[in-house]
Every structure is written in structure tokens, then in C-alpha cells.
Simulated scan of single mutants.
Amino acid sequence: MFKKKLLMGVLCITMAAVAFGCGSKKNKDEKSQTEDQTSDESAASKIKYNVDDYVKLGDYKGIEVAKEEAKVTDEDLNTAIKNILQSYPETVKTDKQVVEKDDTVNIDYEGLLDGKAFDNGTQKGANLKIGSGTFIEGFEEQLIGAKVGEDKSIKVTFPKEYGNKDLAGKEVVFNVKINYIGEEKIPELTKEFIKTYTNKDMTIDEFKEQLKSELLEQKKTTIQTNRIDAVKTKVLENSKVKEFPKGLLEAKISDIKKQVTEQAKSQGMELEKFLTQNYAGLTLEDFNKQVKTSVEDRLNLLLITEAITKKEGLELTDKEYKEQVEKYANQMQSTVDVFEKQYGKDSIKEEFQLQKTWNFVSEKAVEK
């Protein structure tokens, strides 16, 4: 509840539709905000042109790529298991009595605003590593020096931009009890751990086989991604965009700025303040430069892709779009309507078209 807000890269936001993984599951408030947005046609989609007038295509079939084999070694499997176990450390009680930085403490706490407990502000038996920055700023530091069994009152102030408007910018008091100081221990791979991790009853061997299968699929996906990237790089080098269609660059930049401005507005902030507070002091000037550079690179890719699409008759069909958008919406635990309004239907179609065309080019590549 009191974790510091994690920051995504600003270009992940501005080009959100490029890779939908930048999105996340929406809570109720976020969903209603998204549903209130309009899904107007983007400015860029209104600009009409003949792509053949702007692109000189080079070779895009028979591109040579390195041959890669998907396989999972024992070392790969052991590393994956080790990473899983390290992600679920057990906190073991120690005899230590005074809290120091980097200690893991087990605490009960109750948060009070104007003397009254507020929602989601109370928990018993919470494990907290001092100095991790997990809780609101100032909370962890004030526990240093506290003793096991001691009751301690801590005053902290929520950030002005905090998501809960009832708490944003407010000073609150947390009554905290130190239950014990623990140390993190990496668990063993047991049937009990596997049940907790997978919510399934399986033997250690069965778990390893399942994990190995998952790792193999990940390797295949990585190889395919690397293959497409390699092919794409060579095709972009072989081809040339003579110039951008009139007004297209400016329209794309406008669409992105509009998207980020709307996000700032949803948090009750002007764009400049939103960037400064959320992106380590990023100025509006630097933001504008980054957006322009990204859009220029993006347009270069889009126009060359469009030229290949037109030449090969690879235009995305309505059926393909429907199947893809339903799949992505389900993966993000959303609805198609909310998903389209979140990213913009034009941007989603653009991304699906990129996938279809470059999968085709990748299939025509030659392994050496």
C-alpha cells in the first residue's frame, strides 16, 4: 500500500502502443478514467499519401541471419530455480534486539489521520527491510534504533501526488510495534515450496520438467525476437525513406504529446510538473527532444514497413485485428473497449501490422 511509485521510462509511455507490455492491470479508478476518454481518430491517421512516393525499398527477402537453436541446459534450469527461490526469501527470527539499517523487521502498524484509522493503513506481522524504500519516505528511517517489543509512534507526510487523494499531502501517524528482527534465508526447493509457488501439487521432478518447458518456450520467443530484429536492421539499412509525407511527423508528435498530457491531467497536473515529478526532473524541453527523435525513428520504420506491406499484399484484415485485440485485452485482464481506449485503436492496428509484416520478412530470411 505504501510503496513508492515506480517510474516507467517516459518513452515507454509515449510509445505505449508499440509494445503493450508497458501497460498494466487497471484498478477501478483508473478503469473509469480510461472509459471516460474518447477514442477519436489520431491526427496522423488523417494524413493521406502514397507510400511509394516516399520510400525506396531495398532487398527484404532472403536476408541472411545466424542460425540459433533453442535448448535448455542444466545450468539454465538451475539458475532459474535459484532465481525463483531467491525471490521468495523466508524471514527467520533472530535474537537481535535493536533495529539497524538493512535489518528485516517484523512489525504491526496502524495508520491514523487526525486520530482516526484510515483504510488499508493497518497490518499485523508485516516484514520490512529497513532502507529498502518500500514504505512512505521517512517511515523506515524512524525505526532505526527501536527495540524489539517497543511501541513507537512515527509521523510522516504523504507525497502531494500520492494516488489516494484523501491522504495526498497529509501528515499521518503510524503506531508501530517491533515484533522481532529477522534475517532473510533462501528456502529449499521442496514440495511445500512448489505448492506455494505454483498452487499445484507436484513432485520436484514434475516441477523441473514444467519449468524446463517454460524456459524452452522463452528461448524460442527470444530467438524469434532476435531474428526479427536482425532482419529489420538489415532491411532498414537496405532501404531509404526519401522524406516524410507533409505534416506526418508533426501529427505523430502531436498525438504522443496529447497522450502524455492526458495522463498528466488524469493525475491533476500540468505536463511540465508531471514530467518533473515523475521522471527525475525531466524538463519539457528534453521531453520534446526525446519525443521528436523517437518519432523520427519510428516513422522511418513505419514507412518502410508500409511499403513492404503494400508490395506483398499483407494488409491486416478485420478478422486478424479482432483476434489479436481480444488476445491482448485478455492478457491484460481488460476488455477490448477499455484496451482500445487506453492505447488508441489506430496505434493498436499499427502495432499489429508491424508484427504481421515483419513476421513475413523473418520467414523469408535465410539461416546461415
Rank of each mutant, 00 (worst) to 15 (best):
E141S: 10
E141A: 13
L143S: 06
G145K: 10
K147C: 08
E150P: 07
E150L: 03
K152T: 10
K155Y: 08
F158N: 15
F158K: 12
E161Y: 02
N164K: 03
K170S: 12
K170F: 05
F174T: 15
K177R: 14
Y180F: 14
G182A: 12
K185F: 11
E188F: 08
T190H: 14
T190L: 15
E192W: 15
F193W: 11
K195S: 01
N199T: 11
E206K: 08
F207G: 00
Q218P: 09
K219F: 03
K220C: 05
T222K: 15
T225D: 00
T225F: 01
R227I: 00
I228D: 00
A230T: 04
T233I: 02
V235Q: 01
N238A: 06
N238K: 06
S239E: 02
S239P: 03
K242V: 12
F244P: 03
K246I: 01
L249D: 07
A251P: 10
K257F: 01
K258Y: 08
Q259P: 03
T261E: 03
Q263N: 09
K265N: 06
S266A: 09
E270P: 11
E270H: 11
L271M: 02
L271D: 00
E272I: 02
F274Y: 14
L275P: 12
T276A: 15
